[in-house]
Amino acid sequence: MVDGKKLTAVLMQISHKMTEQKDYLTRLDAAIGDSDHGINMARGFEAVEKKLPSLADKDIGTILKTVGMTLVSTVGGASGPLYGSAFMKAGVAMAGKEDMDLSDFLEAMRTGVEAVQMRGRAGAGEKTMLDSMLPAMDAMEEEASANAQIHTVLKAGVIAAWDGVEGTKDMIATKGRASYLGERSVGHQDPGATSFAYMLETIASMF
């Protein structure tokens, strides 16, 4: 289903999406954070983009691990270690694989989301990227267990991710920088949850 070439193509599109949404994500972060989430993500994926040409013929595990390490070493802030760990751990789960099928993809994703939970010591409802990641995972796994096609699975994930993003508006942040605002964080959507929804949306658009 997905080989190294396809995966690097998807990553390229994600990078473009991050650059495209850089200002928007930064504006979201200005409201409840420190005005840098879009800048951070764009910087990280720009670095990833530079590595992609040399990765297309590598196995899935290597590609994901390299992406993770690149994000860790270029993004900084909270999102760097979180997204970085997610890709790195997903890479470990896919070590040696030349090809990913749907269940591999879901396993990689789940491993990545768990890595975010571990690294950030956060759970659902804390107004973080997990609030789009977790519902998206659940929705995708549910569709997959009903034997849906990849396209349908991803579509369900995207819808759940954006619902999750919408849901962050009502939450009081208790993790990350937005938590310092307390009640003042209510009414604003979480930048990290938003960047994840864009990522998944980009993936879905390619299947």
């Binding site: 930064t26 200005a30 420190d34 800048i39 920088r177 310092y180």
Partner: peptide, 26 residues
């Protein structure tokens, strides 16, 4: 933030932000 180009928040002539951090956040 230079790369952001716009201030993190805006304040009226008679307003102030109390309990600020050191990252330009409100």
């Amino acid at each position: 933030v230079p790369a952001a180009g716009n201030p993190g928040f805006t304040l009226g002539e008679n307003e102030m932000e109390v309990g600020i951090g050191i990252h330009g956040e409100p």
